[in-house]
């Protein structure tokens, strides 16, 4: 039982648990966080396998940027919409489970039949350093692919801008107009009270106290507050 084996089993478990969490979590945010944990576990595995550069890139780009992007979009799109557990398509669950099991079995059988050798190891390839070796490959042999993927990145950025753009159909409301609108419907003149102010705690979920000693419901975000059963609120 050497260090690598230990690392593999621990990290492997974490990765699998995270993957199952992605699929099984009721709330979308939980899925995103599970995926982030899987990715970090994989990053460590990369590093253990001699792909140091990739491990770092995995953490920085994949987990850091891509998963955060996922979370931003989740927030935009309905972070509190929970998945109803009933399946709309008839037989999809059973079929999916069966197909998944069959597929997995086939893959594992294929791998078992195909992989016969052991590790050669990357000591020689990483001789001048992993980054250098990788750079050697990317900028000489795979240069064309590199250029294409950079073009792809630019295109993707442009595409995102185009897709998310919303045409302004009416003239922009000035601040004066927005203020007038707000007060016409009886809106608050002052900002919302901060939570936890005038109180013993400084937590975001502790409600502020009104002058008459009651809690100010509006000081805590509705999301954190959760559904209130009291109709008076």
């Amino acid at each position: 039982m050497n260090a690598e084996a230990v690392a593999f089993w621990v990290l492997g478990t974490v990765a699998v648990v995270g993957a199952v969490g992605v699929v099984a979590a009721p709330k979308a945010v939980y899925s995103a966080l599970s995926l982030a944990s899987t990715m970090i576990a994989l990053a460590v595995i990369y590093a253990a396998q001699g792909a140091l550069f990739l491990g770092v890139v995995q953490v920085v780009v994949y987990t850091g940027a891509v998963m955060m992007l996922f979370l931003f979009v989740l927030m935009l799109i309905g972070v509190d919409s929970a998945q109803s557990l009933t399946e709309t398509i008839r037989g999809q669950r059973i079929a999916a489970v069966l197909a998944g099991l069959g597929f997995g079995a086939l893959l594992i059988a294929g791998i078992g039949a195909g992989v016969t050798g052991g590790f050669v190891g990357l000591d020689k390839a990483n001789g001048a350093g992993n980054v250098q070796g990788l750079a050697q490959l990317i900028f000489t042999r795979n240069l064309w692919a590199f250029e294409l993927t950079s073009a792809l990145l630019i295109t993707a950025a442009l595409g995102a801008m185009v897709l998310a753009h919303r045409e302004r159909l009416e003239p922009r409301k000035t601040q004066r107009e927005m203020a007038i609108e707000r007060f016409r419907d009886g809106g608050r003149a002052t900002p919302q009270p901060n939570p936890g102010v005038y109180a013993r705690r400084n937590a975001v979920d502790t409600m502020a106290r009104l002058p008459d000693g009651s809690d100010a419901k509006s000081s805590v975000s509705a999301t954190i507050r959760g559904p209130q059963t009291d109709p008076a609120q």
């Binding site: 990765a15 699998v16 993957a19 199952v20 992605v22 699929v23 899987t38 999916a96 489970v97 197909a99 998944g100 099991l101 597929f103 997995g104 893959l107 594992i108």
Partner: peptide
């Protein structure tokens, strides 16, 4: 295994 879980 990870791939299969993702596909499912």
């Amino acid at each position: 295994l990870l791939f299969t879980i993702g596909a499912a």
